[in-house]
């Protein structure tokens, strides 16, 4: 489904600030995988996502998605197949545009079907309302509300909907609940699991919540210094606990886990 082959990325090469963010990293993801990714600060988790999504080109290596080599494709072309959510709930929506206008833009990912000069039709609105109803936040009655007036949780829910309204081949979640209050975070996480399992979306999720990392999904990766140092899946994953993760990290990396925002449990 997704293959990264020996991908490397170095920031500011040749300077004192040189930083090897990805170091000959290889990864194979199967269709339908829900993979959680943990790692200490600066381990290269977000860099990995940036490389997959196309925010920068890898210095070396290849990235193949669904049989297509996407190594040199720009962001907007990859986003046809890749949906992404950031930690910052403000990043995924246009604040001065209404809910329906944002959703209409998300539909553009579907490509061909909609004409460039078409306007939002009443059929579109019906579809939007139905999709919004599933968020259970009352947004279905506020189609013409500017998105800037919504709460962080509501905006992240809307972003999640926009990223999945046309089911993507791959969904990247970069600590997408970390900036929300606990109630909203729980709600967004539940929605994420619901949508991912319904549409069978292949999903990579960065989290700093170790409990979440072991309880959600079918595979957990641990990153350190731009490499994957632990890869646990299958039977072993279902028995994994947060404490196991910390112990295994100490054994492999030779030092203790130092993510300053790490959470052992909910």
């Amino acid at each position: 489904m997704l293959d990264l082959i020996e991908v490397s990325k170095t920031f500011e090469p040749g300077t004192v600030n040189e930083k090897k963010a990805l170091d000959r990293l290889s990864l194979h993801v199967d269709k339908g995988d829900f993979i959680t990714i943990v790692g200490s600060n600066g381990a290269g988790k977000t860099t990995l996502f940036n490389a997959i999504a196309g925010n920068f080109l890898a210095d070396r290596g290849r990235i193949v998605l669904n049989g297509q080599d996407i190594t040199f494709l720009p962001v907007h072309q990859r986003s046809r197949q890749i949906g992404r959510l950031f930690q910052d709930p403000l990043k995924g929506t246009a604040p001065h545009m209404t809910i329906e206008e944002n959703l209409a833009l998300a539909y553009r990912r579907a490509g061909g079907k909609t004409s460039l000069f078409s306007r939002i039709s009443s059929q579109d609105r019906r579809q939007f309302r139905e999709a919004l109803k599933e968020l259970d936040m009352g947004l279905e009655n506020r189609l013409t509300t500017p998105v800037g007036t919504l709460s962080g949780g509501q905006r992240q829910a809307l972003t999640l909907l926009m990223a999945t309204i046309v089911p993507p081949a791959l969904l990247l979640l970069d600590e997408h609940t970390a900036a929300l209050d606990p109630g909203a975070a729980e709600k967004i996480m539940a929605l994420t699991e619901q949508i991912v399992s319904r549409d069978k979306v292949t999903c990579l999720m960065i989290t700093h919540n170790l409990q979440q990392a072991v309880s959600i999904g079918n595979r957990t990766l641990m990153m350190e210094n731009g490499r994957i140092i632990l890869d646990i899946s299958g039977e072993e994953h279902s028995r994994l606990t947060a404490e196991d993760l910390i112990r295994r990290f100490r054994e492999t990396a030779g030092r203790s886990f130092d993510n300053d925002r790490i959470l052992l449990s909910d």
Binding site: L116, F117, R119, A163
Partner: peptide, 27 residues
């Protein structure tokens, strides 16, 4: 009228949130 079309929305979003535009597969 143009600003309410799909293309017009894309132009508006470009000024409003450039991050989101690329993520919606708009160049």
């Amino acid at each position: 009228l143009f600003l309410a079309t799909r293309l017009g929305l894309s132009v508006r979003a470009t000024g409003d949130n450039p991050d989101m535009v690329a993520a919606s597969s708009i160049d």
